[in-house]
């Protein structure tokens, strides 16, 4: 049932039937190390180049997630997946051998929210029994395509974030399961004119603030109705901005707010500056910390809001701003039902 300005509420809920996360070495040394399904210490994932590495990572996430859900390849009706590279090459080349109908998505680092939104719409409408929603990012492939060659000597600004090598996948279905999605709010493109590639939190925070505010008003809820409101990869500066922007709208979420980008690394010890970013950041934190806490009933209801910065090296060379987008997904534990 559609609600308010930009939301859908699912009457029966769409069920999360399995999930998995796989990350690289640096992520595997961070605070969440024990919560991931797999940590791969080879940055090439057995591949030949960074793009191939990310493709292999995607394939491994897909296979692991399907196995975790106790399903087989043939049970999956659709895959909703994407990545950060040009023309989604990590997804296309990684998942081509799965032989499952695929929707390739680009939402920058908000892709996990976009894939869960579209996947849940598909399942709730009865168009599929099981769908796989997943995404990934790789530090080296992202640096190479968006910044500089890795051997080039530069200093990262304090506002910069570290692209996560890793990703996560979720199987959605219409029954059973371990948690459920009860609603979504789809983000609009929000542009406050920020142009600083090294301060992505500032580019994306306005979008996150807008989506969260619209979500609460569409559902007629207040922040206290959630145990956690979790943004994707705003980092420490983006978090400050988000709280200020929402405060301005009369909405205070300090108590509930958490940012995946500030959870996955220890920014002091691992020298990541403002936090983490990349599609794989929110995806791998969702498929470790967040879903574990929801499944065990520690959190009853969570608003998951991955955030993306919509730009390309071309748009940024042409001096255009960096607009943001954020998609909200309501995830609830099964215990709360009724």
């Amino acid at each position: 049932m559609y609600l308010g300005e930009a939301s859908i509420e699912y009457q029966d809920g769409v069920y999360i039937q399995g999930y998995a996360s796989i990350v690289g070495e640096k992520e595997g040394q961070g605070p969440l190390r024990s919560l991931f399904h797999d940590v791969e210490n080879d940055p090439l994932f057995g591949g030949d180049n960074w793009e191939d590495a990310e493709s292999r990572l995607q394939l491994r996430i897909a296979n692991t997630t399907i196995r975790e859900a106790g399903l087989e390849l043939k049970d999956i009706r659709y895959v909703f997946a994407g990545d950060l590279l040009g023309q989604l090459i990590a997804t296309s080349f990684g998942l081509k051998d799965l032989n499952i109908p695929l929707f390739g998505l680009y939402g920058a680092c908000s892709t996990m929210g976009e894939s869960l939104s579209l996947g849940s719409i598909c399942v709730s409408a009865g168009h599929a029994d099981h769908v796989l929603c997943m995404t990934s990012s790789h530090f080296a492939s992202a640096e190479k395509s968006f910044r500089f060659p890795l051997g080039y000597g530069t200093q990262r600004k304090l506002s910069a974030t570290w692209t996560v090598t890793g990703g996560g996948g979720v199987i959605l279905g219409n029954s059973g399961g371990i948690a459920r999605i009860t609603g979504i709010t789809t983000g609009k493109i929000v542009d406050y004119g920020c142009t600083d590639k090294e301060n992505m939190g500032a580019c994306m925070a306005p979008a996150a603030a807008d989506t969260i505010a619209v979500h609460l008003s569409d559902f007629g809820r207040c922040p206290e109705d959630y145990d956690k409101i979790i943004t994707g990869d705003l980092g420490s500066i983006g978090k400050t901005i988000l709280l200020d922007l929402l405060d301005e709208r009369g909405c205070r979420i300090e108590k509930q707010h958490m940012d995946c980008g500030m959870e996955i690394f220890d920014s002091e010890k691992q020298d990541t500056h403002a936090g983490a970013s990349g599609c794989g950041c929110s995806a791998s934190v969702l498929c470790s910390l967040i879903l574990k806490n929801i499944c065990s009933g520690i959190w009853k209801r969570v608003l998951f809001v991955p955030t993306g910065a919509l730009f390309s090296p071309v748009s940024s060379n042409e001096g255009r701003s960096i607009p943001g987008i954020a998609h909200a997904v309501v995830i609830e534990s099964l215990e709360q039902k009724g």
Partner: peptide, 15 residues
């Protein structure tokens, strides 16, 4: 609002 002077606001909160 913050939006009207976003650039200077961001500069303020960025270390």
């Amino acid at each position: 609002s913050i939006k009207e002077h976003y650039d200077s606001y961001v500069k303020n909160v960025t270390p």
